[in-house]
Design a protein around this nucleic acid. Structure first.
Length: 574
RNA sequence: GCGCCCGUAGCUCAGUGGAUAGAGCGCUGGCCUCCGGAGCCAGAGGUCGCAGGUUCAAAUCCUGCCGGGCGUACCA
């Protein structure tokens, strides 16, 4: 912790005769930075001291002003506003950032602990849509964040490659498919077959039975069914891999639902024998009702359908057990949309009933869905936006912006292409992280393609500006300049913003929400741009220039790290 | 019916107990012979869904209601 804050808290605690942690708990930045650096609201101490908050503040202020690192302490009604020794504060903050560099904001709290994150997990035979982006981007960022905190993170891509839908797909392919068209149009062709299947099934319900029959054959190991299925998987995976490459995402484990298909039979058997599962209406279920809560019965977890085939809940159960046995995880996170809360509630409860103590370490990291024109995306209704199309448009638009600014950017053609890609991806990624995770996102082209204001490109641009200054400075970044040269409010404000980074990384991890970090990063970029606009760096008197270079260096380090944790590239030029 | 989520500026969203509720977009008006204008500054714009309650203090906590979304046994 900041030593100045500690001194203040200790002195105040001493004076008020309360624990220092109590003071630290209320000590905060004031409403307006012109009031000072910190404020102590005295309401919390009024009751036990039997004094009004105003009286307490009036007495506390002079006591705190005696501290050498406190420049000014003023009682303002019930608040004590503190202005501290700025050079010392700046030396502490910037010194820490410059010393720790890439490690700033990290910790070793995760030493020896493993976190398994199940994310992205797309369904085979469907194109990547913007709806898939949310889980992909959230999961990837969480992974980066936990790694920064010292955890070993296993990113799991639990591909949706098993289930009734593949019976339907095989049935559709057998009726209308062609090898050439699938080779040529990959997932898009598979998707067309799938859509057609459901259209025709409306007219001819017998088709559904045909699909179910194929899935049964698949589960029973029928060679023809398996061969077709494997081919669909391969075709799809090649496409997905291409997107993951563009997004800079790698998984430690790619293991679809199909990998658990041999585990489900014995698992169901075991659960039946132990009396945890039972047969009901021809299916096998795990009842989840609590004793005696009549009237609000919990729906059971369905393990096996009456036709003998399994469900994804069955495979999820097997996967959880498999992952615990393999990794002894500290936590396993499922980054899956909020519509599936009930499924996970059931899943976790079933595992608890089975007696696994680690069931409490399973977390459903729920998020709001992506809507189009206020409606849920429907692949069947054709109300869908493909990731590929969004990416193309974003990259194209950025290319044009780069061309317009050509004289300034000094980029080679290759660099331009790379930057267009990195910034295009950045725009899409940031758009997915710019709301707290439970908010639905209404997809709008003008929003994703807006690169001004609160956006990925704005953050990246800010970083490139700082990089430009350091590039032109040419010298080494001074590690311990005279910080009393930094007297502008924008300089102090920026430094204080940098100090918040570690806490924001922590908060994002704790709440499983990278938004907390992306929100902070925007504020940081804003502080940087305000500073940049009001304080020239290069060519200023040496003392000022050196101190400002240190500030720029520290700011760039934090912004870059933050972008990385969100899954965005931080180009040096753009 | 029950469960979960959401309701804050024209639009999209922050803010989960502390001072005068903040951003972005849009709108109006400014700012480089100077490190990158994808920028910065200023302005207009709000009965925080409604009604009670708790508290020295409520957008924030509690209760009820209204509006919207999702889920609720053989899809994933």
């Amino acid at each position: 912790m900041n030593p100045i804050v500690r001194e203040i808290a200790e002195r105040a605690a001493d004076f008020l005769n309360v624990p220092a942690a109590r003071v630290e708990g209320v000590l905060a930045p004031p409403r307006d930075e012109s009031l000072g650096d910190y404020t102590i609201p005295c309401f919390a101490f009024a009751k036990e001291l039997r004094r009004s908050p105003q009286e307490i503040a009036a007495e506390l202020a002079p006591a705190l002003e005696q501290l050498p690192s406190v420049e000014r302490a003023e009682a303002a009604g019930p608040y004590v506003n503190l202005t501290v020794d700025r050079p010392r504060l700046l030396r502490h903050i910037l010194g820490t950032v410059l010393k720790e560099g890439e490690r700033y904001g990290g910790s070793d709290e995760g030493q020896g602990k493993t976190i398994v994150i199940d994310y992205s997990s797309p369904n085979i035979a469907r194109p990547f849509t913007i709806a898939h982006m949310r889980t992909t981007v959230l999961g990837h960022s969480l992974k980066k964040i936990y790694e920064h905190l010292g955890y070993r993170v296993i990113g799991v891509n639990h591909l949706g490659d098993w289930g009734t839908q593949f019976g339907a797909l095989i049935a559709a392919y057998k009726r209308w498919g062609s090898r050439e068209r699938v080779e040529k149009d990959n997932v898009y062709e598979l998707f067309r077959l799938y859509v057609r299947f459901h259209e025709e099934a409306k007219k001819d319900p017998a088709l559904e039975d045909e699909g179910r029959a194929w899935f049964k054959r698949l589960e029973e190991g029928d060679p023809e069914a398996l061969e077709l299925w494997q081919w669909f998987v391969d075709v799809s995976w090649r496409v997905f891999q291409h997107y993951y490459e563009i997004l800079g995402i790698e998984f430690e484990e790619v293991r679809g639902e199909s990998a658990y298909r041999d585990m489900t039979g014995p698992l169901i058997q075991e659960l039946l024998e132990k009396g945890i599962a039972k047969e009901s209406r021809g299916a096998v279920i795990v009842p989840l009702d609590e004793e005696g809560d009549e009237g609000k019965e919990e729906p059971p977890l369905l393990l096996r359908k009456s036709d003998g085939t399994t469900l994804y809940a069955t495979r999820d159960l097997a996967a959880a057990i498999y992952h615990y046995e393999k990794y002894q995880f500290h936590k396993k996170l499922y980054v899956v949309d909020a519509g599936q809360s009930l499924h996970f509630k059931q899943l976790f409860k079933a595992l608890e009933k089975m007696g696994y103590p680690w069931a409490k370490d399973l977390v459903h990291v729920a998020f709001g869905v992506v809507l189009i024109e206020e409606q849920r995306m429907s692949t069947r209704a054709g109300r869908v936006v493909f990731f590929e199309d969004v990416l193309k448009q974003a990259v194209e638009r950025i290319r044009r912006i780069i061309e317009e600014a050509e004289k300034k950017t000094e980029l080679s053609d290759e660099e331009k292409e790379q930057v267009a890609q990195d910034v295009g991806v950045g725009a899409i990624v940031y758009a997915n992280l710019s709301r707290s995770r439970l908010q639905n996102i209404n997809f709008r082209w003008d929003e994703v393609l807006s690169f001004e204001g609160r956006s990925g490109p704005y953050l990246q641009y800010t970083h490139a500006r700082l990089a430009g200054v350091l590039r032109k400075y040419e010298g080494e970044i001074p590690q311990d300049p005279d910080y009393s040269a930094l007297t502008q409010p924008q300089e102090v404000a920026l430094a204080k913003k940098l100090e918040q980074f570690p806490a924001r990384v922590q908060a994002a991890a704790q709440e499983y929400d990278p938004f907390l970090l992306s929100d902070y990063l925007y504020d940081l970029a804003l502080a940087i741009n305000k500073f940049y606009d009001s304080c020239r760096v290069l060519g200023e008197p040496p003392e000022i220039e050196r101190a400002r270079i240190a500030l720029v260096g520290a700011a760039k380090t934090v912004l870059k790290k933050g972008l990385e944790l969100l899954g965005l590239k931080a180009p040096e030029k753009m």
